[in-house]
């Protein structure tokens, strides 16, 4: 019963936060609403027994990504409110597209199964990749079956880091050579 309450409360909060992001005119407000939506999502993860992901969600999204956003907003430090009204055609197009997506999804709802299997806390020999709650399972999976993707993801983060440093350097081009190394 608790779960249901949590689900309805936080999904409402999440959808509210999401809509507010889309509707708010001030980016600072939008970022704050976004944090609300992301934290609510973390709670929804909890109701799905994905404790590790919930922690990750709070740490990575709410803690790092949104701070980055806020940081950029503060750094640019100008009037970032939108001056123009959105284009009516684009709005109509967007509504039609999203309506279609929702319609497809709602038609489909009902095909799935609703029985939730019980969860263990560690993988069992018979079913090594069954859904488990502990973060230990992540460790096992990532370092065995998903070893290759995790390495690739490491390089992905490296690329992102190199790229961010390259693009963010405040150097005059052409006139003087880049001074700082990466």
């Amino acid at each position: 019963m608790n779960e249901e309450i949590l689900f309805y409360l936080f999904s409402t909060l999440m959808l509210f936060g999401g809509s507010a992001v889309v509707l708010s005119r001030n980016p600072v407000n939008a970022a704050l609403y976004m944090i609300l939506a992301l934290v609510s999502l973390a709670v929804l993860f909890l109701t799905l027994d994905a404790f590790f992901l919930a922690a990750l969600q709070v740490l990575v999204y709410a803690g790092a990504v949104m701070v980055l956003f806020l940081f950029v907003i503060m750094m640019l430090d100008v009037d970032l409110r939108e001056r123009s009204r959105p284009n009516i055609m684009a709005a109509a197009l967007g509504l039609v597209t999203t309506g279609a997506v929702v319609a497809i999804l709602l038609t489909w709802v009902g095909e799935g199964s609703t029985i939730r299997p019980s969860v263990g806390s560690v993988p069992t020999p018979g079913n090594p990749l069954a859904f488990v709650t502990g973060s230990k399972a992540f460790g096992y999976a990532l370092l065995t079956k998903y070893m290759l993707p995790i390495q690739v993801a490491g390089f992905l983060l490296l690329v992102a880091m190199v790229g961010a440093i390259l693009l963010g350097r405040r150097t005059k081009l052409k006139s003087s050579e880049g001074k700082d190394g990466s």
Binding site: Y146, L148, V152, F155, V159, A160, L166
Partner: peptide, 22 residues
């Protein structure tokens, strides 16, 4: 999963490369 991760790595490399003439 492999497809998604490597596809995104390609994409991220290209985001940087496209804007390389900063």
């Amino acid at each position: 999963l492999m497809l998604f991760v490597s596809l995104e790595t390609v994409a991220v490399c290209f985001y940087v490369l496209v804007s390389y003439h900063r």
